[in-house]
Amino acid sequence: MNLAKLWVPAAAVIAAPVFGGLIAGIDRKISARLQGRYGPPILQPFYDLYKLFGKDPLAVNRWQPFFAAMYLFGAAASVAWLALGGDLLVLFFLTTFTVGFLVLGASCVPSPFSRAGAGRELLQALVYEPVLILVFAAIFQQTGRWDAAGVWRQGGVLLAQTPLLYLCLFLVLVIKLRKSPFDFSASPHAHQELVRGVLTEYSGPFLAMVELGHWYETALLLMICALFWSSVPGSAILVAATVAGLIFVDNLFPRLTWRWMMARIWLPLPGLALLNLIWLMV
């Protein structure tokens, strides 16, 4: 029985990067089409990843590969935990750790780009972590469960009661997936003043590990989104709509600066989420 239970997370750990990679591929294709280009094949991210694994490992120091691996591990563990139907609060801590490793990895090298990128990464964590915890709180408020399995089984369209929260979650996704509007975004086309922020100093296989971890994170966040409409077709629609929204936001707006993000999102976003929560309570 225990073994049977392990099947689900194992499958999730394997399927999540495939899913994340596909999303990245579709994103790139649609973006290209929106920009009037033909665009790369949908499988492009997989080619990129595989190629990166085959490049010469050029680590800046001993710690860098370790942190990259830990980041990947943390991201994969979060996905497995959620698939297991684990506690959402534990998940919250897992994600925080994951980001921590990314930041550590970026700040253990001497490059100023990478360090400044790490600083911004921390700041952005400050922005979205409160929202994430409020989202989990709202889920608990609605369903009375902290564990993902319970929430899922309870079913129902959480979205109906929590539209504002979902909006916040969407903005978190925009930040988290390094889309826009923020200038430390690391989408393949963005050429920012920090080159590629936290990713600047990674190369070859280590970059591939970070990239893979990133796909896990994508999958994870979309899985959290799916909890808002707990039925198979419902969550599929929700996730698809969310991804489409992300791509459009990315293409319709320039990336704004992190100062703008701090000023405009840091307070309002949790505020909005809180508002939704209060509304739920009364």
Partner: peptide, 21 residues
């Protein structure tokens, strides 16, 4: 850019030597 579009061959402009092929 759109008229020639290198990305259809999977060629991305990275601007970072560590990511370059």
């Amino acid at each position: 850019t759109p008229m020639y579009d290198l990305e259809r061959f999977g060629i991305l402009n990275t601007g970072n030597p560590k990511h370059t092929d």
